[in-house]
Amino acid sequence: MINKKDAILENMIQTFERLGDNSPYAKFIRAENSARIETELPLTIFNRVFDYQAADDDKSQAAGQVKSMIDSYRERGAKCVWHVYSHKLDEVVVETLKTNGFLPVGTMSGMAVNLEGKAIQQPPMPGLSIVTVQTEEELERFKRVFVAEYGLPDELANAFTEAFVYDPEGQMKYFLAYVDDVPAGTAMTFRTGDVGGLYMVATLKEFRRRGIGGVMVGHALLDMQAAGATLAVLQASDMGQTIYRKHGFEEELVIQLFG
């Protein structure tokens, strides 16, 4: 049986490892007890420590290791975000972060839903169509919608979205929603074995409050099922949880962000 908490964390790490490999600007660093990504771009999404666990038999080294990672970002002038997980809480790590000027800056909910045998309802929505990105032209449209939704400045948009690369093997998939043939929303999935991760769910402001986000989630879940995934995972803000809970997602852990 899949451990949902571990699946949420591992899928997120592997997703950003792939994005880091895709990007000429980002570097993913994975060691025995840590996983992080760094870039010269002033973007916290690509300057993150996703996981750090001090060895059980050598907790005395934790403070020094945490400070060393913090310094590696600060020496480059990068603002870093550090993830702390409710099921792996380490007070030494938290205290070291605070001692070095890190403060809580938000939380996310690690959520999961079993897909095996799950009936996913997709009510028809007039004028809405969702396509799996399969051409460079569609991928460029995906990038433009994502950039517009997240408000990335022009000088960073092209550099950041270079991480979105078409995967012919289908482990990473991009979905683009159209309303009356106008690009309106995005979603991305990344499959690791029996686990499908859902990311980049966004709807342009002018198309919100029509239920498009919920339909995008359902479409992605159906695609995961068809590919053989038995568990779907994601990380949600407080605002996004309502949509996901309607599809059966439940909170499995809390991710506290320090920055």
Rank of each mutant, 00 (worst) to 15 (best):
G20Q: 05
A184Y: 03
N47A: 15
Q14K: 14
G196M: 06
Y166P: 00
G77N: 00
K173N: 12
M224H: 08
R36Q: 15
Y52V: 03
R210A: 09
F207C: 01
Y85E: 07
K143P: 02
G213D: 08
E136T: 05
H83C: 09
A157K: 01
E250V: 10
A232K: 01
Q225M: 10
A112K: 02
V133W: 01
G151F: 09
I255M: 15
Q61P: 02
K79P: 01
E251G: 03
L222V: 09
D71V: 14
L234I: 11
E140W: 08
Q235E: 15
V254F: 07
F249V: 00
E250I: 12
E140T: 04
E75T: 10
V133H: 01
A157G: 00
Y174W: 10
R36V: 02
Q65D: 14
E250N: 04
Y25A: 12
S34Q: 13
T39M: 08
Q14Y: 08
M69S: 07
G101I: 13
D238N: 09
A226F: 10
N22W: 05
E137R: 02
Q53E: 15
A112L: 11
V179R: 03
I243E: 01
R245M: 15
E17W: 05
E206R: 07
G77A: 03
M224V: 09
G117T: 07
Y166R: 08
V93W: 02
Y178G: 04
V49D: 05
G127C: 09
R36S: 14
N3G: 12
T132G: 02
R18P: 07
P42H: 11
